[in-house]
Amino acid sequence: MLFARLVLLVQAMVWAGLGLLYWVRPYEMANLNGMLLMEPASVSEAQVFYGGHQFALALFLLFALRRRELLRPGLILVVLVQLTLTLSRLLIGWSEGDLGSDAALWGLLYRGAISLLAIVALYWLARRSQAPVDVAPEPPGVAAEQLRQADFDGL
Score class of each variant (00 low, 15 high):
A104G: 06
A126Q: 07
L20I: 14
F152V: 12
V81H: 09
R111H: 12
A104Y: 08
V10A: 14
D102M: 14
A136W: 12
V78F: 05
D102F: 15
P139H: 11
E28V: 13
D134L: 14
R127W: 06
V7Q: 02
R68G: 06
S95F: 11
P26C: 07
A4P: 03
A12F: 10
P26M: 02
Q146L: 08
P73G: 13
P132S: 15
G52S: 02
Q149G: 05
G17F: 09
M13E: 07
L9T: 06
L87A: 12
L62T: 04
L85S: 13
V48D: 05
T86A: 09
G141V: 08
G154C: 03
L70N: 01
A150Y: 00
W23K: 01
L37I: 02
E39K: 15
I76P: 02
F55P: 03
G34P: 04
R89T: 11
N33F: 15
R5G: 03
V7P: 05
P132D: 08
L6N: 05
R89F: 04
P137L: 13
G112V: 04
F63L: 12
V142K: 13
V120S: 10
Q47V: 07
E69V: 11
R89C: 11
I92L: 15
S95I: 12
S101K: 03
R5D: 04
R127D: 09
R89P: 04
L77W: 09
V133H: 04
A136N: 10
G34Y: 05
L37T: 01
M13D: 11
F60H: 05
V135H: 07
E45C: 00
Q149Y: 04
D151S: 09
L32E: 15
G51L: 01
Y50N: 13
R67V: 06
G93I: 10
A136I: 13
F3R: 14
F152S: 06
A150G: 03
W106P: 01
A118K: 02
R5A: 00
L9W: 10
H53K: 10
L59I: 11
A16R: 03
E96P: 01
V10F: 09
A131N: 06
A12I: 05
A12L: 04
R128C: 08
A30I: 01
P132M: 12
M38Y: 12
T84W: 15
L8K: 09
V81N: 02
V43A: 00
A64E: 08
P26E: 06
F55W: 14
L99E: 04
A58P: 04
M35E: 09
L91P: 00
L65A: 01
L75H: 04
A113C: 10
P140V: 13
E69K: 15
M35W: 14
N33G: 15
L70R: 05
G141I: 06
A104L: 12
I76V: 14
D134F: 14
R66M: 14
V78K: 03
V10C: 11
G100D: 02
Y123L: 15
V142L: 15
R68K: 09
A131Y: 05
R128N: 11
H53N: 03
G154E: 14
V133I: 13
